[in-house]
């Protein structure tokens, strides 16, 4: 197995508060890896450090052997790392079609081209991507007016438009109803398999986590306290004490 993402001794502190503490982590090609941990464990910060939204205080992030520590987001994504966000993060006053199309234009390096009219660019691929996330019919509706679950699906389509090797999903089912969650999981499962994507995701819904991940890492107070196959993590005494108790409360 090749290691796609190699993180060594990553630290991040915000004026004394340590959000990420000496995290080392490998993501292998083709695996589906979940990061779990209670609220405030530092999951989103960890993602932001990988994708260049924040610069780490110490440590390195390598992607395919290349050092990408502190590289700005727009360059990171060009290397093949796409992500979705915990909060809805789309282009609200544009149509769904346009939302996906701008991502395709960016991938093809056309964003700064002032004299190429946009009407005929990537029309088929845009519709295909919308079809993939079941939004083909809504292509010309305004994105900001969609239902929450559909906006999440649109996010996925935007991320896929970058043709990434690695997909980072930050709580892909946050705020969804149980039926929406099920549908979203089936969608993610299908897409990652079909496209052979490596998946790194954070999630609070334990059903989702154990359902689709190959490996799990547990983040607590900014530190990775356990990692391994789902069953190993499930039976880890530290995890049981710190995390699953809280998860059981959540479920109740």
């Amino acid at each position: 197995m090749t290691v796609l993402l190699e993180i060594k001794n990553l630290w991040k502190d915000f004026g004394g508060f340590v959000a990420t503490r000496d995290v080392s982590f490998d993501l292998e090609e083709g695996e589906r890896h979940a990061i779990i941990g209670p609220n405030g464990a530092g999951k989103t910060t960890f993602f932001n450090l990988i994708t260049g939204h924040m610069a780490p205080s110490k440590g390195t992030v390598k992607f395919r052997g290349r050092d990408i520590t502190g590289m700005p987001p727009h360059k990171v994504v060009k290397l093949g790392l796409a992500r979705s966000f915990q909060r809805i993060n789309i282009f609200p006053r544009m149509t769904l079609f346009e939302n996906v199309q701008v991502a395709l234009m960016s991938r093809e390096g056309q964003s700064t081209n002032m004299f190429k009219l946009c009407f005929d660019l990537h029309v088929e691929e845009t519709y295909e991507l919308l079809e993939t996330v079941h939004l083909r019919e809504a292509a010309h509706e305004t994105a900001g007016e969609l239902a929450y679950g559909k906006q999440k699906q649109l996010e996925l389509a935007i991320a896929l438009a970058e043709k990434p090797d690695v997909l980072l999903l930050d709580e892909p089912t946050a705020g969804m109803s149980p039926s929406e969650t099920n549908e979203a999981i089936r969608l993610i499962d299908r897409i990652t398999k079909e496209r052979g994507l490596t998946l790194l995701f954070t999630e609070h819904d334990m059903g989702v986590v154990f359902g689709i991940s190959d490996r799990i890492s547990v983040l607590h107070h900014g530190e990775i306290i356990a990692r391994g196959l789902p069953d190993e993590v499930r039976n880890d005494p530290d995890v049981r004490r710190i995390y699953l108790g809280e998860a059981a409360d959540d479920a109740a």
Partner: peptide, 27 residues
Amino acid sequence: VITHSAFGRSLVAVRENLGRAGFIGIH
């Protein structure tokens, strides 16, 4: 032409959501 080019539409995306535009690779 400029506002209806690939640039123009991408620019609207920048206006709509600067952070997200950066993370679809737009400078």
